[in-house]
């Protein structure tokens, strides 16, 4: 699936719900679904606050399923991240005055199985995340 929307904060809720609905075909637990929603919310919020800091733009989410794994790609064409390593450090925030916790990438890393961030200054940022959804037979139900 592919979703494209304007970088307005009111779209954060709708975008994570769409990805969760797409993921539900893998029959995830409520916890797995909540992890996915939270990770998507972090990536989209980053794109809005940082990527498009100087003006609205488009955010694209692509999601695909292979066997029992979901891959989610969140893209923006915003200002990009100069130092990805620094940005990914827990509690690092370039905007302490906005009461940002600096936990965004840490949440994505913890709640998903893999996280890759690519960014070019002035061109935008791509966040790629995957998560394995355990098969029903492996779950305690």
């Amino acid at each position: 699936m592919k979703l494209e929307f304007l970088s307005k904060s009111k779209n954060e809720s709708f975008s994570r719900v769409v990805v969760a609905a797409f993921a539900s075909q893998l029959d995830p637990t409520l916890e797995e679904l909540s992890d996915i929603k939270t990770a998507v919310s972090e990536a989209v919020t980053n794109a809005i606050i940082h990527g498009y800091e100087y003006g609205e733009g488009l955010i694209t989410i692509e999601a695909s399923i292979r066997e029992n794994e979901i891959e989610i790609i969140v893209k923006d064409s915003g200002k990009g991240i100069e130092n990805i390593e620094e940005a990914m450090e827990p509690f690092y925030t370039s905007k302490p005055n906005l009461e940002r916790s600096g936990m965004g990438f840490t949440v994505m890393e913890t709640f998903m199985d893999s996280l890759v961030v690519e960014s070019k200054k002035g061109e935008g940022t791509v966040v790629k995340m995957t998560k394995q959804i355990k098969k029903v037979s492996d779950k305690e139900r």
Binding site: S13, R16, S41, E42, T45, E99, S101
Partner: peptide, 13 residues
């Protein structure tokens, strides 16, 4: 029903 790291920022503040 949902909270992400923005909630953590709010609590820290």
């Amino acid at each position: 029903t949902f909270m992400d790291s923005s909630g953590i920022g709010l609590i820290m503040g």
